[in-house]
Design a protein around this nucleic acid. Structure first.
Lengths: 158, 158
DNA sequence: TTACAACCTTAACCTAAGTTTAGGTCAAGA
DNA sequence: TCTTGACCTAAACTTAGGTTAAGGTTGTAA
């Protein structure tokens, strides 16, 4: 914990990142972070790992699966990355985030018009059914979901 | 499938909502949707359930857990709800969505400044460490996560 | 009335992201 | 030296959100 401490123990990382030791083990096993071992086989990390853990946690809050986070970090970490490559990756990552943001905003906007209506309570829907008029044409009631579009990242779940 | 069809089979719901039959069963078992049974014990639903399923899927895409979606829907469904009550619930739900939206936008904005830097590649971080200067004071490197705020809804995961 | 798709239930299985437990080792201070 | 807290591994367990399988029933159309 002194200032010119060259490396962090797993406990240090846990304390300073707010993540349990078991999770640090887990992340290491999954290849999301890396460090080295002492002669006594104990884990040691560079300070830089803290930021990496922080990014992992933020990305998780955003709903990104670890596999995707890892994949992305790995691609950025491949040493000779051209700015064009970086650009592509960055755009993909953003597209996925944008998709999720859109989803959330859309959901929020549905609140007044939909959550208050009969489809959620058991009373009649006061919005005389703009959705159900679609039903004759096939896959109705998908209007919310179908507005999502099919970005590059939606394939992740499909 | 004819127009004045009063009810939907589980297959109808599946087809029209784009969700597998097994998932419809699952949602029903979890109490997220409800219907009734024919004399032959087959499921029947009102058309309204389609919109409900659509909302569930959008909410899921936004990263909300089913338990939370259900909890919220249940509260709206409690029959005698005053407009004041509705207002409170609506504000809570929106606050949570806003929090998540903010989180995502923040993450997206971190992309350029952070994912391109040395904490992800193995080179030195070009952003001469605004995070690590915090390390002397205790839980450093939590700056991203701690910017998230602790709204009424963050307790859900904690 | 017979075929066949669509339905039913229960139970086992699956992935993700960890957590917990058990049994053993390491390192630093009194 | 001894104790104690921090560390190690492996394996079992957990929750969420489903999917798959097996074996039986229903409903409809020829």
């Amino acid at each position: 914990m002194t200032d010119n401490h060259p490396s962090l123990t797993v406990g240090d990382v846990a304390r300073r990142s707010g993540v349990p030791v078991s999770t640090i083990h887990f992340y290491e096993k999954k290849g999301l972070i890396e460090g080295w071992r002492t002669q006594g086989n104990q884990r040691r990390y560079e300070r830089r790992v803290l930021r990496r853990v922080a990014i992992i946690r933020v990305a998780q809050r955003a709903g990104l699966p670890l596999a995707l986070i890892k994949e992305h970090m790995d691609r950025y970490a491949s040493t000779p990355i051209t700015s064009a490559q970086w650009d592509v990756l960055n755009r993909e990552w953003r597209a996925m985030l944008d998709e999720r943001i859109t989803s959330l905003i859309q959901l929020r906007n549905q609140l007044d018009s939909c959550i208050g209506c009969g489809c959620l309570s058991l009373a009649d829907c006061p919005l005389r059914n703009p959705g159900d008029t679609l039903s004759r044409e096939g896959p109705g009631a998908r209007l919310l979901a179908s507005q999502q579009g099919q970005g590059a990242w939606s394939s992740i779940k499909g």
